[in-house]
Design a protein around this nucleic acid. Structure first.
Lengths: 218, 218
DNA sequence: TAGATTGTTAATCGATTAACAATC
DNA sequence: TAGATTGTTAATCGATTAACAATC
């Protein structure tokens, strides 16, 4: 059953969850697959197909109980359980994410940060102590983490990934400019690449300039 | 021909480009679809299919000239031409991206930044002047931009998007926690959501714990 | 009960992979 | 020339959409 669920389905689950939490904040109690689909810009069929991969959470004639379904999706994603995170690289992006993401709300606990800059070592960022990268194995050995967030330059990414693997960190959240493949290793990786996203946006921008001529306008 | 190229193909183009630039930095001159596929973890067939959507850039028996193909992909994506960017929200993520992304290398020029915090207005970040959000229409009116980068809280995202639309900004690069749909408007949007990416990583992490039992290990 | 909406099966559509003639 | 590798067509595979019986 390894990798049995389509990545497309997995990628949509957080979007469903956000849609449900937003509806909940508006005070709503129930929602239909058609309503979810309208909010996400997809079809009711797809919403139901996606959910039935994991189980039956709705009722005919009623739809879905929002709180119940949201809880189920959190359980499916595994975000109902606590996770420990270590951050490697406390430069711009690492620091910004440390300071601005509401990790605690989703049971993520950032236990340690690492950098090679001596000026940062010994400080804390948003309550998280910054260690020197030299101490990575020791600190992680004493306090294992589930996820290592990589916010280091491209040149350092692969070496840090190797160290994380050696320390049995099972997951990498990689913000460096180089996609990490790690084929064969039993380590999961999520690559986040800002430039890729800017480039695809630019494609659609230029594409819209061409297709959105006054006559071709929809 | 609107939206005629599959988003999957578009999303892979920047990855091909990075692969080519990396090969170029290693001093290589030619590359085959099989080599690109190996680097990206896909198939040679897919690489060739993707490229032939846009044209014929290779030669039988030879493969692809790296410099030539990289140039073609940059042209396809539209990143060979200059683009102007405005940043709205100079908090953590906005500031971090402003300070750390090498926009200039790909002909992006950040002309203005905006915030509602009076303490930031009048300062510069990495050479970019910070204006008050009140002056958005005037500043953008005087110096139009192609892309508006949204690094504001969820609560402000939709309102800023509306203002950008009113000022004829054709593209939004949205880092706020709320996906923007803007269906109907002739505006292109790229949503970047860190939490979504962390959640899917968590799914695969938990999935690997289950499937990677000693016996099931590959 | 009547209306609504699910879960699920079948039909369609699109994307990936395989195969191979063309040709550098 | 012989070997390699493209561009492209055909085959396969998977994902989305449509349809509908089940039932709340």
């Amino acid at each position: 059953m390894i990798g049995s669920v389509s990545p497309n389905v997995i990628n949509r689950m957080p979007k469903y969850l956000r849609c449900l939490r937003a509806a909940q904040e508006r005070g709503e109690k129930r929602i239909s697959s058609a309503q979810i689909a309208a909010a996400l810009g997809t079809t009711a069929s797809q919403v139901r197909q996606d959910l039935t991969v994991f189980g039956s959470y709705g009722s005919q004639g009623y739809g879905y109980n929002i709180a119940l379904l949201a809880g189920e999706i959190e359980r499916i994603l595994g975000i109902d359980a606590p996770h420990e995170i270590a951050v490697v690289g406390v430069g711009g992006i690492g620091r910004a994410l440390l300071e601005h993401m509401d990790f605690k709300r989703y049971h993520y606990h950032v236990t340690a940060a690492f950098d090679v800059n001596p000026a940062l070592v010994g400080t804390t960022v948003n309550g998280v102590p910054v260690y020197h990268m030299q101490d990575f194995a020791r600190v992680i050995g004493e306090n294992p983490v589930d996820i290592c967030m990589l916010t280091v330059p491209k040149s350092a990414a692969m070496e840090v990934a190797r160290q994380a693997y050696a320390c049995h960190v099972p997951a990498l959240w990689n913000f460096s400019d180089e996609d990490l493949k790690l084929s064969g290793l039993d380590m999961v990786v999520q690559n986040v690449n800002f430039l890729d996203s800017l480039f695809t946006l630019t494609y659609y921008l230029e594409d819209s300039k061409i297709t959105m001529t006054p006559a071709a306008n929809q």
